[in-house]
């Protein structure tokens, strides 16, 4: 296949792709407007609306809360998911297929239903609207991603390497730390980053589980834009876009985004 010269196919494809990034092409420039209203194209240039965010404690607080929630979710999901993935990849045991299906099933069910189910459970046991409730919910939807990613990283893993380490005198724990973990580090790392991203951006489940005091940034934006649209919210959105973009670029660098979505044609052996 040569470099595409001109093709109608390419033109149509590029038009569709522009459509999918259109929201960002509109939001980001208009957040720098110096005008009083949200317009596109923006008028002039200023950082005024970014400064205005600081006058709104609910945004600042929600931003901190979201970062905190996403970070804790990422760390715990990575640990839980990696352990489970190693068990699934390394051992065969009765009912393994069922366990595998069950572990990934939270991704299959609509977020709406999960959100409702968790709201009902959490209000019964009194953790609705708390950090711990949100954390559990976010873990539920991020652990399957980590499992899937680490499993991909482990596919083709030569377990003889572990045997080799073990016969050389390394205890199981030492084998795990000096051989297994270093070899699947990119997958684990990407799993954690992706968990952060999923948690930081989530609206559909969080919406059922937040309270007035403990709320995430996307929820605050969701509530705000139902009433009013102004350049300040464009500035907030731009910040969210940037915070989301950093993990995306990290995953692309360390692992490859397409692998994340099962598009890898040639999987590299670790």
């Amino acid at each position: 296949m040569t470099r595409p010269k001109f093709s109608w196919l390419g033109l149509v494809a590029v038009c569709v792709l522009i459509g999918t990034v259109l929201p960002f092409l509109v939001i980001i420039p208009s957040s720098f407007t110096s005008g009083a209203y949200l317009t596109f194209p923006p008028q002039g240039f200023s950082l005024e609306w970014y400064a205005r965010i600081l006058d709104r404690p609910e945004f600042v607080h929600a931003f901190g809360f979201s970062l905190q929630l996403a970070s804790v979710t990422a760390v715990l999901a990575t640990i839980i998911g990696t352990l489970a993935a190693i068990a699934m990849s390394k051992y065969s045991f009765p009912g393994k297929a069922a366990v595998n299906g069950a572990l990934l099933s939270p991704l299959v069910l609509p977020a709406l239903i999960l959100g409702i189910a968790l709201l009902m459970l959490f209000s019964r046991i009194g953790i609705a609207g708390t950090f711990i409730g949100l954390l559990l919910a976010h873990l539920l939807i991020t652990v399957p991603f980590v499992i899937r990613l680490v499993l991909t990283g482990l596919s083709g893993f030569d377990y003889n390497i572990e045997k080799a380490a073990s016969i050389l005198g390394a205890s199981p724990l030492r084998v795990f730390w000096t051989v297994t973990i270093p070899l699947i580090k990119p997958a684990i790392f990407s799993g954690g980053i992706f968990a952060f991203l999923v948690s930081f951006d989530n609206v559909t489940i969080s919406l059922f589980l937040v309270s007035n005091k403990q709320t995430t940034l996307p929820i605050v934006i969701f509530n705000y834009i139902q009433d009013s649209l102004d350049p300040m919210i464009a500035a907030v959105s731009t910040i969210v876009i940037v915070v989301s973009l950093v993990p995306i670029v990290l995953i692309e660098r360390f692992y490859g985004l397409s692998k994340l979505f099962g598009l890898s044609e040639r999987s590299e052996t670790p």
Partner: peptide, 20 residues
């Protein structure tokens, strides 16, 4: 380009369409 927009919160993307 296909994947990235999909990884940003739906709220933000919908906000963009409100403006469009």
């Amino acid at each position: 380009v296909v994947i990235v927009p999909h990884l940003v919160s739906v709220v933000i993307r919908n906000f963009g369409w409100l403006m469009v």
